[in-house]
Amino acid sequence: MPLTSLSTADGTLLISWAFPAPAQAVWAGFTDAALLSQWLGRPTECDVRPRGMVSVDHGGGYLSRSVITDMDRPRKLAMSWEFPEEPESRIVIQLRGTDTGTVMNFAHHDLGTLVDSYGPGWITHLTYMEAAVAGTAIPASQFWSLHATFEKMYAAHLTADTATP
């Protein structure tokens, strides 16, 4: 897992991830319905253009809705994020090609007190996305066990960050 940095500040989750794939392939992971279905959920609408709507069925009656607010293919994708029973938030994804692949900076803004509950989820989803982009999808049946592992790691990270020397 090439998670290179993780931080939370002021209700924003910041994740930096190094993908061993070109930016166009990583971009497709966020914009191609077939790839979205391998890592985020079943797209019910996938209109990836400015003011377009992306809706994803995560199962169990949970449907996220996003409106594309800014886009610069294949470098930047910004969108709203609406999830049931939560305030609307914003996501900004920036991609930068490197000699070895692509660095993604992922920011989920306006999470408030939900920021730490989103950390393990996005890490799990991005692990699935990396596999999907590489053409080696992880079976959906492994999602919750992998998520539980990341929750433990994330909790340890939080504890280490708040420990006083």
Score class of each variant (00 low, 15 high):
2 P>M: 11
3 L>F: 09
4 T>S: 09
4 T>Y: 04
4 T>L: 09
8 T>L: 07
8 T>E: 11
9 A>R: 15
11 G>M: 04
14 L>E: 13
16 S>V: 14
17 W>T: 05
19 F>H: 08
20 P>G: 14
21 A>I: 05
22 P>W: 06
24 Q>K: 09
25 A>F: 05
25 A>V: 01
29 G>H: 01
32 D>I: 07
34 A>N: 12
34 A>F: 02
38 Q>G: 01
38 Q>T: 08
40 L>I: 03
40 L>M: 06
41 G>D: 11
43 P>E: 08
44 T>F: 08
45 E>N: 13
45 E>F: 10
45 E>K: 14
46 C>D: 06
46 C>S: 06
48 V>K: 08
49 R>L: 00
50 P>C: 09
55 S>N: 10
56 V>A: 02
56 V>D: 04
57 D>R: 00
57 D>F: 05
61 G>F: 09
64 S>G: 07
65 R>F: 00
65 R>Y: 00
66 S>T: 08
66 S>Q: 12
67 V>N: 06
67 V>I: 15
68 I>A: 02
69 T>P: 06
70 D>M: 00
71 M>A: 03
72 D>M: 11
74 P>W: 07
74 P>M: 00
75 R>L: 13
75 R>Y: 13
75 R>K: 15
76 K>N: 00
77 L>K: 10
78 A>W: 06
81 W>N: 06
84 P>R: 02
84 P>I: 04
84 P>L: 04
86 E>D: 13
87 P>Q: 07
87 P>L: 03
87 P>S: 02
88 E>C: 12
91 I>W: 14
93 I>F: 06
93 I>T: 10
93 I>P: 00
93 I>G: 01
95 L>S: 08
95 L>R: 07
95 L>Q: 07
96 R>E: 14
97 G>K: 12
97 G>M: 10
98 T>V: 06
98 T>K: 05
99 D>W: 10
100 T>K: 11
102 T>C: 09
104 M>I: 04
105 N>K: 11
106 F>D: 01
106 F>K: 03
106 F>E: 02
106 F>P: 01
107 A>S: 15
108 H>D: 09
111 L>F: 04
112 G>K: 04
113 T>L: 13
116 D>S: 12
118 Y>Q: 12
118 Y>A: 11
119 G>F: 08
119 G>Y: 05
123 I>Q: 13
125 H>N: 13
125 H>A: 11
126 L>Q: 05
128 Y>M: 08
130 E>K: 03
133 V>D: 05
134 A>F: 08
135 G>S: 04
135 G>A: 02
135 G>I: 01
135 G>F: 03
136 T>P: 03
136 T>A: 09
137 A>T: 10
138 I>S: 03
138 I>P: 02
139 P>E: 05
144 W>C: 03
145 S>E: 10
146 L>E: 14
146 L>F: 11
150 F>D: 08
151 E>G: 05
152 K>A: 14
153 M>P: 07
154 Y>L: 12
155 A>M: 07
157 H>D: 12
158 L>Q: 14
162 T>W: 01
